[in-house]
Amino acid sequence: QVALSRTQVCGILREELFQGDAFHQSDTHIFIIMGASGDLAKKKIYPTIWWLFRDGLLPENTFIVGYARSRLTVADIRKQSEPFFKATPEEKLKLEDFFARNSYVAGQYDDAASYQRLNSHMNALHLGSQANRLFYLALPPTVYEAVTKNIHESCMSQIGWNRIIVEKPFGRDLQSSDRLSNHISSLFREDQIYRIDHYLGKEMVQNLMVLRFANRIFGPIWNRDNIACVILTFKEPFGTEGRGGYFDEFGIIRDVMQNHLLQMLCLVAMEKPASTNSDDVRDEKVKVLKCISEVQANNVVLGQYVGNPDGEGEATKGYLDDPTVPRGSTTATFAAVVLYVENERWDGVPFILRCGKALNERKAEVRLQFHDVAGDIFHQQCKRNELVIRVQPNEAVYTKMMTKKPGMFFNPEESELDLTYGNRYKNVKLPDAYERLILDVFCGSQMHFVRSDELREAWRIFTPLLHQIELEKPKPIPYIYGSRGPTEADELMKRVGFQYEGTYKWVNPHKL
């Protein structure tokens, strides 16, 4: 086992960053958080920038500027975001240094004079007029057009580079997404736009490419001749908990499936790229999406959770019991969808996408189930092999396979070949997804960000279904809070070829 401390991990990262040409360590950078008073800024962006600063992973002359409508001070920003920093008493001095680099400007999102004030403020910072500028839009999409237009007109660096990070949702359907994309691309070049999907920053999602293309053993079996089906799962054990009003506007397909799960599907299904260059990788992902037809209604199961009468606390409440959810809402909190990649490698292999709230566990994984062994000599005792990439929690890679049961006879039983990170790298604290992705933006690497043509294809696949749901308002199937979801989803999976045995229990190697 390799035991690495946080300091050692960050030392390795620093070495990698400083050796590259793309990370300008000594240049002045300004990180501007648009929507600095909001939840995302408070819980994710400010803490992430602090962790990067604490670990010495930001360029040395980096300033952080918050911008929002609320009249706040840096002290206010500190008060609301610091509880999420997880700072230790030993880091007190470092924390003071961090907040000394912070400033805040209040202004409207659609007022040109406010942006001119913001620009004057940035120019007044040390070497601010020639600094590289990175704008993070932690804002609702309704203000994107006004904000990007004003940034472009008043706040661009004339000497350094300018980059803009856009948070999902990128529209509600193909038409609104196209409108937003066309607007942003009329102001910024594609190499300046970073559409963030934080799932692409997760260690195991990034590991998929290495697993596939750096190991000879997987190449020959990664196709329709050997793989019976692919299941991509995202499960949350909690409901909307008072935030249903926002969720109800989008629903589970827009929230998770059309982005996170579809991105994971691309990494499983794509061909080997010409290189690890950002556009070479994204070219292959677009090719996969172009091979997927629009979702067919007979390959869809929609569910909505109801309270568990035997549960406790939140578990007793259904989705419609959330006071922020519109009365009688038919918005799905669970969806199972089957897609097919219609190309030579994957023809006929079902890709089953499942996601839901208020389920029995927290889990995100990719599961490849292989065909049955031909010419069975073990009297149907063999179960199908599976390769599982567990994204969260407890990152893991393992192969479910058959071995001989101890004893006199040739009785096979299920076991696993474990390729888990935790076994080799004991207690290594890896940077989280937002840390990686923000560092990628500083480096100018777009590999783990969504390109406009990729986004367009993703919406093309799901828009007809979303429009049909909005028009017909089908009643989702009720499922109990804390269950596996509607049984109809299991029946759909069985119908397209997935075999669920229920006889195997994964042993978490992190707890051995």
Rank of each mutant, 00 (worst) to 15 (best):
D255R: 08
V256C: 10
Q258T: 15
N259D: 14
H260F: 15
H260R: 15
H260Q: 15
Q263Y: 14
Q263R: 13
Q263F: 10
M264H: 10
C266A: 15
V268F: 12
A269N: 01
A269C: 11
M270P: 02
E271L: 01
E271P: 01
A274G: 09
S275N: 04
S275E: 03
S275Y: 04
T276R: 10
N277A: 13
S278E: 05
D283P: 06
K285W: 08
V286T: 13
V286Y: 15
V288D: 01
V288I: 12
V288Y: 01
L289I: 07
K290G: 05
I292T: 12
I292R: 00
S293Y: 05
S293R: 10
E294I: 13
E294F: 11
E294G: 14
V295S: 05
N298M: 05
N298W: 09
N298A: 09
N299C: 08
V300A: 08
V301K: 04
L302E: 01
Q304E: 01
Q304C: 04
Y305V: 02
Y305H: 04
N308D: 12
P309N: 15
P309V: 12
P309M: 10
E312C: 09
G313H: 05
A315P: 10
A315I: 06
A315F: 04
K317E: 15
K317H: 11
Y319I: 01
Y319P: 00
P323N: 11
P323T: 10
T324N: 13
V325N: 05
P326F: 05
R327P: 15
R327G: 11
G328R: 09
T330R: 09
T331E: 12
A332S: 08
A332V: 04
T333M: 00
F334P: 01
A335Q: 01
A335V: 04
V337F: 14
V337P: 01
V338C: 10
V338P: 06
V338M: 07
V341Q: 00
V341E: 01
E342T: 08
N343W: 01
R345W: 04
W346H: 01
W346T: 02
D347K: 13
V349K: 01
F351G: 01
I352A: 01
I352D: 00
L353F: 07
L353I: 09
L353G: 01
L353M: 09
C355S: 09
C355K: 02
C355A: 08
A358G: 06
A358F: 01
L359D: 02
E361Q: 13
R362C: 07
K363D: 13
L368H: 02
Q369F: 06
F370K: 02
H371P: 00
D372L: 03
D372W: 04
A374Y: 10
A374M: 14
I377T: 07
F378A: 02
H379F: 11
H379I: 09
H379C: 11
C382F: 05
E386P: 00
E386S: 11
V388M: 14
V391I: 08
Q392G: 11
P393N: 10
P393E: 10
P393W: 01
N394I: 08
E395H: 11
A396Y: 13
V397E: 05
V397W: 12
T399A: 12
T399F: 07
K400G: 05
M401V: 12
M401T: 04
M402K: 05
M402Y: 15
K404M: 15
K404N: 15
K405R: 13
K405D: 15
M408G: 10
F409P: 11
F409V: 14
F409N: 14
S415M: 15
E416W: 14
E416K: 12
L417Q: 15
L417G: 06
T420S: 13
Y421R: 13
Y421D: 15
G422I: 06
N423K: 07
R424K: 15
Y425A: 15
N427C: 15
N427Y: 14
N427R: 15
V428M: 13
L430K: 13
P431R: 04
L437R: 15
I438S: 00
I438G: 00
I438H: 00
I438T: 03
L439I: 04
L439A: 08
D440N: 05
V441H: 00
C443W: 09
G444Q: 08
S445E: 14
F449E: 00
R451F: 02
S452G: 11
S452W: 06
S452Q: 03
E454M: 10
E457H: 07
W459R: 12
L466G: 03
L466C: 08
H467C: 08
Q468K: 06
Q468L: 13
I469Q: 09
I469E: 06
I469S: 07
E470D: 10
L471W: 07
L471Q: 09
E472V: 09
P474T: 11
P474D: 14
P474M: 10
K475C: 12
K475P: 11
Y479H: 00
Y479E: 00
Y479A: 00
I480T: 11
I480G: 09
P486W: 01
P486F: 02
E488F: 04
E488P: 07
E488V: 05
A489E: 10
D490C: 12
E491D: 08
L492E: 02
L492N: 03
M493R: 12
K494T: 14
R495E: 08
R495V: 07
V496Q: 09
V496D: 07
V496H: 11
V496M: 12
G497Q: 15
F498S: 14
Y500M: 15
Y504V: 12
K505H: 10
W506L: 12
W506H: 04
H510K: 10
H510Y: 11
K511G: 12
